[in-house]
Amino acid sequence: MAQTQKSTKHMVQLGLYTAIALTIFILEAQLPPVLPAIPGIKPGLANIVTLFLLSYQRQHPVRDALLVLLARIFLGSFFTGQMMSLLYSLAGGILSFGVTLLCSRIFKGEVLWFTGIAGGVFHNIGQIGAAAVLMQTSAVLAYLPYLILGGMAAGLLSGLAAGFFVKRMRRISDRAASCQKKS
């Protein structure tokens, strides 16, 4: 019984995280492009959820973060109605996830801003790589330096945000735990 309760709670939690990530993703897709001259530069704030889960979840952080990420990418493509962008999102998302995971292991969940930067940069590298392969042209690689800089700015933003969020959430859950002990 306790087991079922726990797994139901866990499933609801993941559903909520997916909903948060999806909301951020879809809201962001409605905004006009940051730099219209250079395609592909965007804040990428949905990455906050991935970063947060990787360093906050105590059990199965990797599995949970990956599940939420994949659900967000698939549902996001459905909802924004751009199935073509699914491939680019997947390429960027998975490469970015790998690098984010590596960084969060190396830095043990600290210096989240740098983990964010690494994830952002490799997200853009993955996307442009997918574009070069799908369109069979290396011409798009000319945007690589711009997209790396853009990924850095975006990654810094979401990394810092995730860092603050993890700190606050830890404080809240610690307080909740100590309250439970008292009662």
Partner: peptide
């Protein structure tokens, strides 16, 4: 296409900044 990114890219007159239409695979 729905996103119109290539249209928003505007005018180009130099190398190293191709206009790209991702959904229709046009460069």
């Amino acid at each position: 296409c729905p996103d119109q990114l290539c249209v928003k890219m505007g005018w180009r007159d130099r190398p190293n900044s191709p206009i790209v239409c991702l959904p229709h695979k046009i460069v």
